[in-house]
Design a protein around this nucleic acid. Structure first.
Lengths: 222, 222, 222, 222
DNA sequence: AATGAATGAGCTTTCATTCAT
DNA sequence: AATGAATGAAAGCTCATTCAT
């Protein structure tokens, strides 16, 4: 329950309610089609290789229509980052729902994050490219997730479940560690057929959890 | 001692020995000027905003000359990644030289990494953008550094200085953790005048080291 | 009658029906403007001196618009060769319409060819340059015209109007002979004001016809 | 004898004596190397794809050296046209040497022309491209050869060996006819291995000669 | 006589954005 | 609300030519 809230579930507004002019039912559908098309096109091609034409073609709508919903290529990109960020946090929060303690919440949260990563490779590709397209978006993404970790750590520390760590710094450490392991062991990995795995190897996940647990555990627990 | 070697100091070749046609002394100087200009231009503007003209103007040479030394914009970008990677590893290895034990080596290595980060913001900007320009270069960068961590952990484990961790996985975790903290607490930080700090706050660094130490320490030590 | 058909009048499709994306009436007009501009620019400047900017400027349209209709400079050049070839054959076929016999058909056909040459100097310039830009186009041009001669000769031979010549070889001979005379006595000739003549001198034309007639005439006719 | 002279054998000067600064023995050798390299490079690549670097590389000399011998790319191209023209006329004149009469001289001359064509495909490629690089050179080439035909026809007419034709016009007709047949039946032809034939098929040659003979023969002969 | 590093004008091509329909 | 033809700034790259060595 509260663990889930740490990741900001409450601020989740439906993507389609965000900015963008036409507000009829038809208009909302068009906007959603654009955002979905953009997710795939940006993920497959990257920001610069992607083009408005490719997005509108994939969305099955006319080129000019694009500008009824988004002011620019950058605008839809930013909307997409916000959307993905909302969804990955949702995924983490959902996974943590009902976790009995810090350790379990941690496992569940990371598992949720990695599951989302495996299912939506666009997350990394788009978010990491945001650094070069719209740096504020990158910060927003990291900051929002880190805030979830931070809040969780804060509570856990208050409850004596973790050492007396600086929650902020530690949250960033966890974020970085999770991100690189997700990249290395999910996104870079391919099986014989060139397909990405659906999750990271359990052993790797265990190693990571052990490392974190040792890193955080209060002295007396050990 | 050996800690330094783990980061591949021995493979350090001078940048100017790499590909590029003209081989005279004058030619080598020109190539170096180009690489230096590219470091700044790519760091300031990013790959796509950067242009060959901007690089050659900054280098103070003619546009056409560029193509005597590099086949394309991407080629110089890749050469730059290789160069920066070599230099950051050098910086880390140098810092670790003579460290009496694992813990000190760790502190020194990370300090070296962060120092280089503070002095060469281009490292992050260029390397991280490589993901979208030349993905193999990104892997090469991470892999080479991780290999240094891995080798160090392997030895430390054999010496009983760390828990029985998987050196590979742990190395990636350390890389990720260091990278994000460097980004957050060095690159994103500005003082009142808008200048970047010369290092991360000591407290943050300490927190990080503590986290790593707890994460790695053999049970009996604690 | 049939002489006209030999030059493939029936395959004449309007130039504007060929490839090129935009299909509206406005689009067809733009494509035609481009092709007309290209004819003049290529004829005046040659392929390499010509540039897309010069073509679009002459056509009075934006540079980028060009690429809506043609994939490249070479593509419009090839379209132009096809167009000119179609038109010169049309001109020849039209001239031969209703010729009472082989000799008259021959005169008329060559006259049509030379008339077109005088009116469209671009034909030679563009077609002959095709040899170096798009060799298949050159072959296509010569082959299509030669095929007209060949078919005519075949029929004339069957009708006993010409010696027992090889129609194919003879057709190429006629093509070559006509081409060089057209170049020499129309394209290279200038009057006092530097203007090209509207036709070759009648005496030259007569000489040529006589030469051909003697070359082809059945023994008994002479 | 005289037939040979008609093609201007007497004006044959060695290529290396033409313009070009350095005049030492070494210099002459360098100039020849350049001209030979240019023949191949221009023939293989065409004028625009050819580059000075490619020519000097093929010649095995330094780039800068080129400009000691030729003022520009166009200059060496023109020198090459002059050289090839001289050589093809030489080849024709040689073949005609000692021909007993007009008919035999004709056969021999064309045979010489086609033999040279088969052995030096560069002739067509370079000469025909001259039209777009240096039009005066093209005229010079055609005019010099035509002058040979013309002189021969003049004499033959005086001797009653041919009809009362206009030697000039007829010469151009012969030139055109020979050129296109050479292109069609030698240069365009390839055997199963993609090799060009060493000569045109005898039957084609015969057809051509017959056509010419009929075209020129005085009435009473037939 | 010979060299090759340096130069920059000029070309082709792409694509985000506008706007008349 | 939807469309797609039109636009032109801006980029990467080539190569004939120069000139210091």
């Amino acid at each position: 329950m509260s663990a889930a809230e740490d990741f900001g579930l409450e601020d989740v507004e439906p993507a389609s309610s965000a900015a963008g002019k036409p507000l009829t039912k038809r208009g909302a559908a068009t906007r959603t089609k654009l955002l979905e098309a953009a997710e795939h096109v940006f993920a497959d091609l990257g920001y610069h290789e992607a083009s408005i034409v490719k997005i509108t073609e994939r969305a099955g709508i006319g080129l000019g229509t694009f500008y009824l919903y988004f002011d620019s290529k950058q605008a839809i990109f930013e909307a997409l980052v916000v959307d993905l960020n909302r969804r990955v946090r949702h995924s983490m929060a959902e996974a943590m729902e009902g976790a009995p303690n810090r350790i379990e919440a941690e496992r569940a949260g990371f598992a949720g994050f990695f599951r989302f990563t495996a299912q939506h490779p666009a997350l990394y590709r788009v978010v990491r490219e945001a650094e070069f397209v719209s740096p504020e978006m990158l910060r927003l993404h990291y900051t929002r997730i880190v805030e979830g970790y931070r809040a969780g750590l804060e509570k856990a520390r208050a409850a004596g479940e973790v050492r007396d760590v600086d929650p902020e710094v530690t949250a960033w450490a966890l974020m970085g560690l999770g991100e690189l392991l997700g990249m290395r062991y999910i996104l870079w990995e391919r099986d014989a057929d060139g397909n990405r795995p659906e999750a990271m190897p359990a052993a790797v996940f265990e190693q990571m959890i052990q490392f974190i647990n040792h890193g955080l555990a209060p002295r007396e627990e050990q």
